[in-house]
């Protein structure tokens, strides 16, 4: 389980995260939602160790990798992490297959044949069979995200972090990516943490939902309870999407009728 305790993060004099306390449910899709600039990407980058917090703890199964700047512990925890970046962050100089093989090349003693087999299995899992020899420049946005997911699961991680996995994608592809992440989370029993501002994802795959507003944890719940929330900021956030706005109104009408 991942547990965050009293996390504070500053950029110079500006505080961007204020005393964040939250727990991520093991084996579930844990969503961090909020509008752009609310601090959710900073929170995720702090959780994976790309940014150092000024104070607070981040515990991975009880191991605090913030305290004492223990590089060895940080490295060992990072090897349990897979991460899907917003733009995919695929290595331009490598083919799709080499991208997926990269973490295995760095950390395993498997033979080349075994690594190729595992990479192909991962690519097949994300429906990209036959794309092995393509370069990242030849891929569409959705394909890049799927290769990034394949690379993230290649080492069978315990934790999967996804930073806005469906940003820049059309609704159909977004849904495919959401489904894929949810299926992988179930299949492998991974603890998945997703940063998103897509309400479709929240309603569909949000086992737990953490709403961040102006760097503070404003609300916690799940995908189904969010429609019942009377929190002004969440309602404002949900109503920004016309589809969610209608859904919210229908939901309230039903309640009133009942």
């Amino acid at each position: 389980m991942i547990e965050i305790q009293h996390l504070n993060k500053f950029f110079g004099d500006r505080q961007v995260l204020f005393d964040i306390n939250l727990k991520m449910m093991p084996g579930k899709c844990n969503l961090i939602i909020g509008q752009s600039g609310s601090g959710k990407t900073v929170l995720m980058k702090t959780m994976v160790g790309l940014l150092a917090p000024e104070s607070g703890s981040i515990l991975f199964d009880g191991r605090n990798f913030v305290k004492g700047n223990n590089q060895e512990l940080l490295t060992s925890i990072r090897r349990e992490i897979g991460m899907v970046f917003q733009g995919g962050a695929l290595f331009d100089s490598l083919s799709v297959l080499e991208n997926v093989m990269f973490p295995m090349d760095m950390f395993t003693k498997k033979s080349r044949g075994e690594k190729i087999k595992r990479a192909k299995d991962c690519l097949q899992r994300v429906d990209l069979k036959g794309a092995e020899k393509l370069s990242p420049a030849e891929l569409s946005g959705g394909m890049r995200k799927r290769v990034a997911i394949a690379r993230a699961i290649a080492m069978a991680p315990k934790y999967l972090f996804c930073d806005e996995p469906n940003s820049g994608l059309d609704p159909r592809t977004s849904e495919l990516i959401d489904n894929l992440i949810a299926e992988i989370t179930d299949e492998y029993g991974i603890t998945t943490i997703i940063n998103t501002h897509d309400m479709n994802s929240v309603l569909k795959i949000g086992d737990t939902v953490n709403f961040i507003y102006e760097g503070k944890l404003w609300w916690q719940g799940n995908g189904s309870s969010i429609l019942d929330s009377d929190n002004k900021e969440i309602i404002h956030f949900m109503e920004a999407s016309e589809l969610t706005k209608r859904l919210l109104h229908n939901h309230r009408d039903k309640h009133l009728t009942a």
Binding site: K45, L50, M83, F85, A89, D92
Partner: peptide
């Protein structure tokens, strides 16, 4: 620089390299 702004360096770092 391109690797940095497209988060490729972050991706390497997150893997523990």
């Amino acid at each position: 620089g391109s690797m940095r702004i497209t988060e490729q360096i972050d991706a390497i770092e997150v893997m523990g390299v």
